[in-house]
């Protein structure tokens, strides 16, 4: 593997109603952010199983970000509250395992916040770039 410059691998889970639409709006307004961010669409941020986050790190992701509707605005009324609680627990466990807290994040991005989506991603990528490659939890058997 030849690496000249570290390009992080970032998985972003976006809820269909707010954050995914926010990401679309960032696109509509041509607000750029690094291509390192790859978005997976989920119906609600509460669909994100901690397992998915672990899987991403296992497969070599350097950062995972989960975006949902603002508290109180969840399309399903309360999904993002579950997300907040679950991820708080998961992230502190990951921190304990050596995956720095900066590598994981929950952000609220509404469908109107294209700019916030772009700036959040720019910020997240630059933080992860500073941290460098994530080695923890990576399952080398997964590498081909």
């Amino acid at each position: 593997m030849q690496v000249n410059e570290f390009k992080p691998l970032i998985v972003a889970f976006c809820c269909n109603w707010c954050s995914y639409a926010g990401a679309d709006l960032a696109g509509n307004n041509r607000l750029s952010y690094p291509a390192d961010v790859k978005i997976i669409r989920v119906p609600c941020s509460c669909r994100v199983n901690p397992m998915f986050v672990l899987r991403a790190f296992q497969r070599g992701a350097d950062g995972v970000i989960i975006c949902g509707c603002h508290p109180g605005d969840c399309h399903y009324t309360s999904g993002n509250y579950y997300t907040r609680r679950r991820m708080t627990l998961l992230f502190s466990m990951l921190d304990y395992l050596g995956i720095e807290k900066e590598r994981t994040r929950v952000e609220w991005v509404s469908a109107a916040e294209g700019a916030k989506f772009a700036s959040t991603m720019n910020d997240f990528v630059s933080k992860i770039t500073q941290l460098g490659k994530n080695k923890r939890l990576e399952d080398l058997r997964c590498k081909k």
Binding site: V11, M51, R55, A56, R59
Partner: peptide
């Protein structure tokens, strides 16, 4: 969703 994660992280 895991398959998507795997594909992205490949």
């Amino acid at each position: 969703i895991m398959a998507e994660v795997d594909a992205i992280c490949r």
